[in-house]
Every structure is written in structure tokens, then in C-alpha cells.
Computed example of a mutant assay.
Amino acid sequence: MKKEFQILKKVMLLMVTALFFISCESNINEIRKSNVVEFNPVGEAKDFNLKYTDSGKIKAILISPQMLDYSHLEFPFTEFPKGIDVTIYDEQGNKSFVTSNYAISYTNSNLIDLSGKVKVTTHDGKMLETEQLYYDQKNEWFFTQKTYKFTDKGNVIDGLGIDFSKDFKTLDTQGITGVYSI
């Protein structure tokens, strides 16, 4: 009888242990589900044409096939997964153009990240091409550490890393090759 009691005791212990692990498995799965953060946009626009005006004058036109709004997140941003085409007007009404295959604009830092065949063309024929370019909206300043090609009146500069003002009047180039007439 002692032997039967010990066997029964071991079987009961095994069943309690099994039930414990089964119940923990369920709770762990529930905890995992509760820790999942929803990462969905609060808004989406397709095939839109946005005109930015100031004092009755058009300052910029943004065209994109898709915009996703993540303004509800702790670090809000707006994503343009299918690229952008921007026309910028200066005080004299001259047009400059910015295009890229992808863009993301960070609300808190006023930083825009352009990537994938980025091209900036000014009204006077200056052109910069690169794979990634950042734009600091507050300081109106472009910069990249990627390779680039800058063309101005037939002069071509290739390099790695460049910073410049939005009107290309101030350039800070690093690691350049090519010939440029000053």
C-alpha cells in the first residue's frame, strides 16, 4: 500500500506540474499579445496634390501617390512610401524641383529623409543626384554622407558627403573628384 501511495503521489505531482505549464503557456501568450504595439497609420492619402501657400502666393507643391500619417505615435512622422515630386517657388517665382522614390518627414525634428534616386534641380540649372539626402526644414539645409553627383553649367563634381543651402549658394563638399571652374 505504501508503494501504491508513492506511485499515486508521483502521478499527482506530474499532473499538477503539467497543468502548471499548460496554464503558464496560455498566460505567456496573452502577455505577448498585450505587448504588441499597433503600428498602423491614422490616416492615408492617395494620389494627392498639396499646395502650400503663404500670403496668397504658392510656395511649394507636393505631389505623391501615397502618404501615410503616423502622427499618433510618440515620435510622429509622415511617410511617402511611393516617393514625392516637389516644386518649390522662390520670392521671384522661379521653380526648383525635388524628387525621390521614398520620403519620410519627422514632425518633432523638422527633418526630412529622402531616399532612392534623389534629384534636386534649381531654376538656374544646378543639379544634385544621390541615393539619400536629408533636409533640415528649420535651417533650410540639405546634407548627405552618401555618394553624389553635382552638376553646374557643365561642371561635374562627384564626391562622398555634401552639405548645402537650399539655394546652393553655400556648399560644403567632402571627398570630391572632378574639375570645377570657380
Rank of each mutant, 00 (worst) to 15 (best):
Y102Q: 12
Y180P: 00
L133F: 10
G93F: 03
I182R: 13
L128F: 00
T151N: 12
V98L: 11
D124I: 01
G83F: 03
V156N: 08
S34V: 06
Y52H: 08
T17Q: 06
K95I: 04
G93T: 05
S34H: 05
G43C: 03
Q132H: 14
L19Q: 14
T121Q: 08
V11L: 12
N49Y: 01
T177E: 14
D167P: 04
L62F: 01
S64N: 10
V120Y: 00
L160Q: 09
L73K: 15
K10E: 09
N155D: 08
D136P: 07
T151L: 06
K117V: 12
Y135A: 00
D136N: 13
I28H: 05
T144I: 04
E4L: 09
M1G: 05
G161K: 06
V42L: 15
G159S: 10
L128H: 04
F77Q: 14
K9V: 06
F39N: 15
N110S: 15
F39W: 11
E140N: 12
S100D: 09
I162N: 02
V86K: 02
S109W: 02
G125Y: 03
K169P: 03
Y89E: 00
I31R: 13
S109Y: 04
G178E: 05
T17A: 15
D152A: 02
L111S: 07
N94P: 00
K82P: 10
K33M: 06
L14K: 07
E38R: 00
P76H: 08
Y180S: 06
E38Y: 06
T170N: 06
A60G: 01
S105H: 15
N27S: 14
V156I: 14
V98G: 02
G56C: 00
F80W: 10
L73A: 13
D163C: 01
Y180I: 07
I28L: 15
E38P: 01
F80K: 05
F48A: 10
T17M: 12
L50R: 00
L19Y: 10
D54K: 13
V86F: 02
V98D: 07
R32H: 11
D136R: 07
I162T: 01
F77I: 03
E140V: 03
Q145M: 12
Q145H: 12
K169Y: 04
K3R: 10
G43N: 02
F77A: 13
T122I: 04
I88D: 01
T173Q: 07
T99S: 09
D172M: 04
F75M: 15
I28F: 12
E25D: 15
L171T: 02
G56D: 07
E79C: 13
